[in-house]
């Protein structure tokens, strides 16, 4: 019981410390974003010559494309990979709406692409940022590789259909890229809102040349694998948001505390069976310690999330009240 207590206390202290550090890093990144937003050169064409190609797999409606074409960054394109065998009407509607015409798909030797993808670009200058690739959907990784082949720019942001970039994401990514230095600029990963600390869901901006050197995206979690194999860094700020519903059981902090709380719960059960009331009291105390740490961590995490979301005044107070009511239920 003595060693169990030491182990659990150490784990709790480390978790709390890392939540505090993550929270401070996120707040610092946010403050930097506010400072940059007040500079008028930020995001302008004078700021950077870096172009970004956003590759989206599995788009189902025109509305999703509209949202992705709504960035005010000057040098980017959106490559949408669709499968006309699943929804022939979608491609037809896109061709009509954006005046798309078919052009040659480049059969270059950089990445191997299966099938015969068809490439469409708009005839109209105002839709020059949109590129549509029609191919038989096999996997997300293949779709992204297809996007990499036709990308005009040297930076690639692969996205799923349920993820959207935040309005300020592209200039911020490019800004961080300039500050990264040449040895750490192959990948810049960022968080996805609504974010939880220690969340492994990420979006990332990759160097096209590095992706090609690695042989393209592969596997079931192609982005995670690519982030691991390239040199870069993680930004402590969400630059994208997800519309996919997330159950609270997916919260990594919750899982962590449930894991830590399991040992004293078992100890409590054992002590109760042995009718050692002193031991049971101490195990109970440990469980309360786990819950107290969970409450403190979630309150720090939530406060940071509210600041990141820009909630002010009454909204933030309401959210904090909700936190106090729900904390015991969640953890």
């Amino acid at each position: 019981m003595y060693w169990l207590s030491i182990l659990i206390l150490t784990l709790l202290a480390l978790t709390l410390l890392s939540v505090v550090v993550a929270s401070l890093r996120t707040l610092a990144a946010l403050r930097k974003g506010r400072m940059l937003a007040s500079c008028h050169g930020y995001g302008s064409e004078a700021m950077s010559q870096t172009g970004v190609s956003v590759v989206v797999s599995g788009v189902r409606s025109e509305r999703e494309i509209e949202q992705r074409l709504s960035s005010e960054y000057w040098r980017y394109e959106v490559i949408v990979v669709v499968d006309s065998t699943l929804d022939a009407q979608l491609l037809h509607r896109l061709c009509h709406k954006y005046s798309l015409i078919r052009v040659n798909f480049p059969t270059v030797d950089e990445l191997s692409i299966d099938g015969a993808p068809r490439l469409y670009r708009s005839r109209q200058r105002r839709y020059r940022r949109l590129v549509v690739v029609d191919r038989l959907h096999r996997s997300r990784a293949d779709d992204w590789n297809c996007g990499v082949v036709v990308a005009s720019f040297d930076r690639i942001v692969p996205l799923e259909s349920d993820r959207f970039l935040l309005p300020d994401a592209l200039p911020r990514w490019v800004m961080e890229l300039h500050e990264s230095g040449e040895c750490r600029n192959e990948v810049l990963a960022a968080q996805v809102a609504p974010t939880h600390f220690f969340d492994r869901r990420r979006v990332a901006m990759f160097a096209r040349s590095a992706v090609i050197a690695e042989g393209g995206f592969v596997g079931e979690h192609p982005r995670v694998k690519m982030i691991r194999s390239l040199r870069g860094r993680l930004l402590s700020l969400p630059l994208a948001y997800s519309t996919a519903y997330r159950h609270r059981s997916e919260n990594p902090l919750r899982r962590l505390f449930l894991g830590i709380g399991l040992a004293p719960t078992v100890a409590l059960f054992v002590e109760l069976v042995r009718r050692d009331w002193e031991g049971a009291r101490e195990a109970l105390l440990l469980i309360v310690a786990v819950y107290a740490t969970a409450l403190a961590s979630s309150s720090i995490a939530l406060r940071t999330r509210l600041v990141v979301r820009g909630e002010q005044g009454e909204e933030r107070i309401k959210s904090l009240r909700r936190l106090l009511r729900c904390s015991f239920r969640v953890y």
Binding site: I65, E66, Q67, L69, S70, E72, Y98, R126, Y127, R129
Partner: peptide
Amino acid sequence: LESYPFLNGA
């Protein structure tokens, strides 16, 4: 000040 509604297909 926002020009994207003219360029995104809306």
